[in-house]
Structure formats: C-alpha cells, structure tokens
Amino acid sequence: MAVTGLLMLLFLIVHMLGNLKIFYGRDDFDHYAGWLRTIGEPVLHGAWYLWIQRFVLLLAVVLHATSAYQLSRRDLKARPTKYAHHQRAQAGYATHVMRYGGITLALFIIYHILDFTTLTLNRHGVEGAAYDNVVSSFSVWWVTAIYIVAMICLGLHIQHGFWSAAQTLGLNRPSRDRAVRGLATGLAVLLTVGFLIVPVAVLAGLVD
C-alpha cells in the first residue's frame, strides 16, 4: 500500500502543477494537454508514454485497493466484538476516515475520467479542447462541489497515508517524526488547495 500510494502521490503532484497552467490561458493549456499525448517522442511513438503511465497508474490503483480490501477484511475479522462503552478514539480524523475516504476517491477517479478523459459526462466534450472542457464542467456548481468534497478526502487520505507509508517502510525515526508529519500535512494542504484553485477559479468566473 505504501509503494503504490507514494507512486500515485508523485503523479498527483505533477498533475496538480500541470492543472495550474490553465491560468496561462486557453492556448497554453491546450498546448500542454496536447504535449501530454506526445511525451517521449521520438523515442516512443505518439501516445505510448501516456498509455504506459495509464497502465502503471491503473495497476497502482488496483493494487492499492486490493491490499486495502484484504487488510480491512482481516482487521474486521480480528476485532468483531465492540466495547459496550464507546471507545473514544485518540487518533485524528484523517486516520479515522481512511476507508471511507479511499472508497470516495475510487468513485471520484471513475467520475473524473468520465468527465475529462473519455469526455462522456463533459458538457463541452470536445477532444483536444481541454481548456473549454474544464471550464464547462466547473461552471456547474455541483460539479465543483463534487471536486471540493473529493479533494478534501484526498487531503485527509494523504495526511494519514504519507506518514503511515513512512512508518510501513521503516523510514520513521524519533528524530525525523516531526519532519515526516510536517511533510504529510504540507503535501495534503498543497494538493487539496492546488487542485481546488482551478474549479473554484472557474466557478468564480476568473477563468472562462
């Protein structure tokens, strides 16, 4: 879970930064979206790189979800009896909502791909016109609302997930604990805010 999670995190950082190119205008953003399909040329042909990346990411998502499912099943089996007196959780909210947050993110990814990759659910839905596709989606308040909820889930997921991955990989040390926790919170805020700037800016009419 740690390895696949960190792989997805790496993608998300690049993806978030790429999205911000929308503020440079339609031509710049569409050109960037076009370039995403030709990365690796001429060593690789056409959209080969894109397909390799899609394959690796899909694999990461599937392995991450499968491990989460197996771990959850094992954990629920190991502790079937609840205490009569409610156990006051000491762990933070982010830790508490990992399962629900993860499921929400999986559903969001499906919705998101139908929105911007296959363009099935996109109101504009013109291939190659990434800028107008983005604007058409986020002009609708409830689409932006879905993204806001999903990105808050993402932030919480990363806040616990990043620290937990460092723990699983044995990278945590008492001397590093503050740094690792700080980095987890920093990445969570950076990604949530960085991703949300775009839909909020569109809804606010700053990008149109």
Partner: peptide, 14 residues
C-alpha cells in the same frame, strides 16, 4: 494467531 494488521492508528501507544 489471528491478530489483525497494523494501520498505524496509534491507539496502542495511548
């Protein structure tokens, strides 16, 4: 032994 898996909740340390 059938113990569950660790998800780093930290409840144990408390």
């Amino acid at each position: 032994e059938g113990f569950g898996g660790c998800t780093n909740t930290g409840e144990c340390t408390v």
